[in-house]
Design a protein around this nucleic acid. Structure first.
Lengths: 125, 125
DNA sequence: CAGCATCCTACCTGATACTG
DNA sequence: CAGTATCAGGTAGGATGCTG
């Protein structure tokens, strides 16, 4: 059987809010990655995405569903979310974006820090 | 000498606001593409980006500068914006994202339409 | 279990007008 | 030319509490 999603799945990596490359809304990319290896239930998704309120997670899922990237199926007594072929095809550009982010993450943070420091000094003067 | 940027550069393609894949803020990807072939001045950028107010374009440029993707240089009597190496490296994931969007654009629009129609019927009932 | 309802805040984006 | 100042609207995201 498929493994449950680890609760700390996104603790380290993917500070997607800081990444200039974004897929859909704030959590969409993480949701897609959660569905990479097969369908998941709402409550399963909530484990790694435990910092997302149910309302916001629902919004994200609805948006993905609207774009045809995710399919929502009522499989009584549960509801399952799974990637459509189009949704799955998004993994490729996501992987490229992730590779870019990993390669340039430090430069990016350094640039931001320098910029902010320079700016702070400017205002102090 | 470098060609001026065509005013209709973004009239047809890249409805980036609808694209689920986004690079930075609303206009960042277009700015980067404008700088692809060399430095540009603010007023040059305003030609293809004529629907962006100067304030918003400035914001976008500042944000790109902060992330170290664009360098702003005062080359009296002008100001020039150009891609840094990191900024240039972003062209690759952008190209991949563009390819994805082109390939799946129609599916995406169809999915949205079906979804919205189904939803409208639901509410009518 | 899988959400919805309400309320609220912050940010993004833009229109318009003005300036060193 | 290359912006800044001000004001305003809309939307995204979230806190909290409730429900079939």
């Amino acid at each position: 059987m498929r493994q449950p999603l680890p609760a700390d799945m996104f603790d380290e990596l993917c500070p997607s809010s800081l990444n200039p490359i974004r897929f859909g809304d704030k959590w969409a990319a993480l949701v897609i990655r959660c569905l990479e290896h097969g369908p998941r239930r709402f409550s399963e998704l909530r484990v790694p995405l435990r910092r997302v309120t149910p309302k916001v997670l629902t919004q994200s899922l609805r948006s993905l569903e609207r774009d045809g990237l995710v399919r929502r199926t009522v499989r009584t007594p549960h509801v399952e979310y799974e990637l459509t072929p189009v949704g799955r095809s998004m993994l490729e550009p996501m992987a490229v974006a992730c590779a870019w982010a990993e390669r340039h993450w430090d430069e990016l943070l350094d640039a931001r820090e320098s910029y902010d420091n320079a700016n702070r000094l400017d205002r102090a003067r």
